[in-house]
């Protein structure tokens, strides 16, 4: 559980430099050196007067369960937003008008943000969840030559180290 500094909040109060027993907070790019950071130490988190440092959790609880009705409706609406995104992206790719392209690109981005949020709330909130693992496992059946199988395997190995981990 290493510490993380939010550079937008950092007031350069320097307390983290004074309290860190390993010098992990003293870097030229403001990113705390996780190789030096002592997991769970908390000294910099407690000392920072700007509240700019927090601990990144190692584990997360299972995500909240979803009812089948909620899943059905979120998926139906998510599907609609995805289709609208695909249409807008196709218009942006084919139109001759720079202004129409600008508007279509905005529509595509807007619909993708809505689709991501709506589908996230259909049971895909947490990257480490059992639902995400099942989605990844099903992807392993994809044998297309251009399919990035290595990305799936990396996620299954790094995010889902044990079978019963949520």
């Amino acid at each position: 559980m290493p510490a993380y500094r939010n550079v937008r909040l950092c007031g350069k109060d320097c307390m983290c430099l004074y309290v860190c027993p390993t010098g992990a907070t003293n870097t030229e790019n403001s990113i705390i050196d996780t190789a030096k950071c002592i997991p769970g130490c908390m000294a910099c988190v407690n000392a920072c007067p700007s509240g700019a440092i927090s601990m990144i959790p190692d584990e997360y609880p299972p995500q909240q369960p979803k009812s089948p009705e909620v899943v059905t409706e979120q998926r139906a609406l998510g599907r609609s937003k995805v289709q609208q995104e695909e249409i807008a992206a196709a218009v942006a790719a084919t139109t001759d008008s720079a202004v129409t392209r600008q508007f279509a690109e905005a529509l595509a981005k807007s619909n993708l943000r809505m689709a991501e949020d709506i589908l996230r709330e259909s049971g895909y909130l947490l990257p480490q969840s059992a639902e995400a693992r099942e989605l990844l496992t099903a992807m392993l059946e994809n044998t297309a030559p251009d399919f990035p199988t290595d990305a799936v395997e990396r996620l299954l190995n790094q995010l889902h180290k044990t079978p019963d981990q949520n």
């Binding site: 089948p68 998926r75 599907r79 995104e85 993708l112 589908l119 259909s122 049971g123 895909y124």
Partner: peptide
Amino acid sequence: AHGDIRDLSAGEIAAI
């Protein structure tokens, strides 16, 4: 409760 992933289109999997 999270539905059958085989019902997801490519675009929906991309968004997820």
